[in-house]
């Protein structure tokens, strides 16, 4: 009997908690509704598409390929990124560069974002700092899979 009374007390306490949340939040909602600005808001919700969220500086977002000063990609096709990539989403084709100091540059660099798991290993592996994941672009929804296969032009542009 005492045990059950204990349950009953907890039930009442539970509803008091939810009531408190309701009343306090409602208070701030009404204050905001009538135009009084308060530091505390009635809800923790962020109105995402209207108020975009700033991604952290080190957040791993869409890749980009860095360029040399003369506009050529920095990538030298060492394929370390393709090697380390756990989802095998990087494909690079090498071409001969006439400059004997560069020798090798990518004629095609494909990242299949359908497969990419954004682990950032490619960035870690790159010896030339040619690939970075710092664009801050996280809204990578497309209407077709083909649009998510990024080639050299999309990655440098």
């Amino acid at each position: 009997m005492i045990k059950q009374f204990g349950y009953f007390l907890e039930i009442v306490k539970g509803s008091l908690i939810t009531t408190r949340h309701f009343v306090v939040n409602m208070f701030f909602h009404i204050l905001n509704l009538v135009g009084i600005k308060t530091k505390r808001k009635g809800a923790v919700t962020r109105q995402y598409p209207e108020a975009p969220i700033e991604v952290a500086r080190r957040h791993r977002s869409l890749h980009r390929l860095m360029l040399r000063e003369d506009g050529k990609p920095r990538c030298v096709v060492c394929m370390l990124c393709a090697t380390v990539c756990p989802s095998e989403c990087i494909f690079i084709e090498a071409t001969e560069d006439p400059d004997p100091e560069i020798q090798k540059y990518p004629s095609n660099f494909i990242i299949d974002l359908n497969r990419c798991c954004f682990c950032g290993f490619c960035v870690e592996a790159c010896p030339e700092d040619a690939i970075r994941m710092d664009t801050g672009e996280v809204e990578l929804a497309r209407y077709s899979r083909g649009d998510l296969v990024y080639d050299l032009e999309k990655l440098t542009g």
């Binding site: 030298v76 060492c78 370390l80 020798q103 010896p127």
Partner: peptide
């Protein structure tokens, strides 16, 4: 140290 472009790597 051009291992990235060296085929012997």
């Amino acid at each position: 140290l051009d291992c990235p472009i060296c085929d012997q790597a």
